[in-house]
Amino acid sequence: MDLARPYVAVYTARFLLMLQYRAAAFAGFLTQCWWGGIKIMVYAAFYRASNPSTHPAITLAQVATYTWLNQALLALMPWSCDPEVALAVRTGVVSYDRLRPVDAYAYWYARAAAFMTARAVPRAILMALVAGVAMPLLSFRELSWAPPPSAAQSALFALSLVLLVCLASAFMMLLNIAVVVTLNDRWVSQSLNPLLVVLSGSLVPLALYPDWAQGALFLQPFAGIVDIPFRIYSGNLAGAFAYGGLALQLWWILVLVFVGRFWMARVMRRLEVQGG
């Protein structure tokens, strides 16, 4: 346990710091309600207006729950590198990080995980209250955030959510290292974000893309950040498929952590410190 203590400590400190940004969280929350509401009305119109034979392998109610979950947990997506890392690289503070007697990868990894989860938790709670409690009471039951269909499915989702955070943090670590190399956080995230939005299932649930692409879409790493966990939640991925999804998330975590550690070791060996 002693071995993990510095990483747990840095996670907790960052988590508490990020909880302070309440105004930003509120603005983000409003935007996410608006976006989620529009998306679901559009999906509902498409489902209503079309022949059931064209419908994808996911129901409208499941798509609605998926969309609310996605909006609630938007902060768990690796949009950019850790802003503190970007600043440390630009100002030269990164040299302090190099002096700490901890594993550099794990240290940044824990901070990245705290950054994302602390931003996600208040937004997710508000969203659950609005889309999960208020909306059904206001008779928008069909388009609201429904609970998981069974206890088994909830347990699988809990596991998948943990894997989601691990996977997203591993992605963020790659962005962090890319920023150390390029010194430019904006271009790195700008070139990766479209890929992230389209392939994770955040733009539209992956099941809505054409049938011929489904296999490849399920196997690629971004699916583990949105599509797999949220389909497990709604029961759209159950049984063997759910276990397969979890295994894929785990596989991609291992791959990304391995690549990240390897890359970081190489980059840090010849690090140029900026600033003075």
Partner: peptide, 16 residues
């Protein structure tokens, strides 16, 4: 990329 979403929805459902 919003155009990709619009394309995917029309490819899937046909019309609106």
């Amino acid at each position: 990329i919003d155009m990709i979403a619009i394309w995917a929805l029309f490819a899937r459902f046909g019309a609106l």
